[in-house]
Simulated assay, not measured.
Amino acid sequence: MQQQLINLNPDLNRLQEEGYDIEVKGGHLVVRQIPYATSSKSVALGTLICVLNYASPTKISTPPDHTISFNGETPCNVNGQPLDAIINNSNRQQLTNELLATHYFSSKPLSGNYPNYYEKIRTYAEILSIHAKAIDSTVTTKPLKKALNENRSNE
């Protein structure tokens, strides 16, 4: 069912095809291996989690709002300062039995909402990873694409 949902929805399919590590779990879109900078000015990997808005059992609609949850340490800029511009709160929240969020982000686009899940995930991934990339230029928000390219070069 998870793969069918991804295949039938262009924005989820595009995320997967581009190499994001995505999973649909408990009514949420889970995106793992998102690089971010920590307070110690090192790079860590976190998880973006957002509620899926279903139009039918096999189709998703547009995101219900502009916010997203995150599991990881407090994301920081390259100088080790928290990304207060997007951190709404840092309260641990058990979203489902299997999904824990440590932070809740808010970054509202000019239009007021993201047009689809692809744009929402891409935007938040870039906000977080730009600081990680300043520390380590080899990090990527698309680890599955990187792994695929590395496997091809080893053949």
Results as ranks from 00 to 15, higher is better:
G26M: 00
I121K: 05
L99R: 03
K41Q: 15
P82V: 11
A37P: 09
N53E: 13
Q4T: 15
P64W: 00
A125L: 02
P143V: 14
T47M: 03
E150S: 09
Q2I: 09
N154S: 09
Q4V: 12
D65C: 12
R92H: 07
G80Q: 13
S153N: 11
Y36T: 04
I49F: 07
Y20D: 04
V30N: 00
L8C: 06
T38C: 09
K146P: 03
N88G: 02
Q81A: 14
H131N: 15
I86K: 04
T58H: 05
P82N: 12
H66W: 12
N154Y: 00
T62P: 02
Y114N: 02
V51W: 00
Q3P: 02
N149K: 11
E18F: 10
N88T: 00
S39W: 04
N53F: 03
P64E: 07
A147P: 03
Y104F: 15
A147E: 06
V43A: 08
P35F: 02
K108L: 06
I6K: 01
P10R: 05
V51I: 05
D11E: 11
H103P: 01
D21L: 05
N53H: 11
L144V: 02
K120S: 06
N13I: 00
T123H: 12
T38D: 06
P109W: 09
A147W: 00
E155C: 01
S137N: 10
L29H: 01
L15Q: 00
I130T: 13
N77I: 00
K59E: 14
S107D: 13
V43I: 12
P143H: 06
F70C: 05
V31I: 15
N79T: 11
Y104E: 02
E98K: 13
N7P: 03
T102I: 09
N91R: 12
P143G: 05
A55C: 02
I22K: 06
V30A: 05
Y114F: 14
K59I: 10
N53T: 14
E18L: 15
N113P: 01
G112N: 03
I60L: 08
T74C: 11
D21P: 01
D65P: 03
L45M: 08
A44S: 13
Q16F: 10
T141N: 11
E126Q: 15
T102E: 05
Q94L: 07
D21A: 13
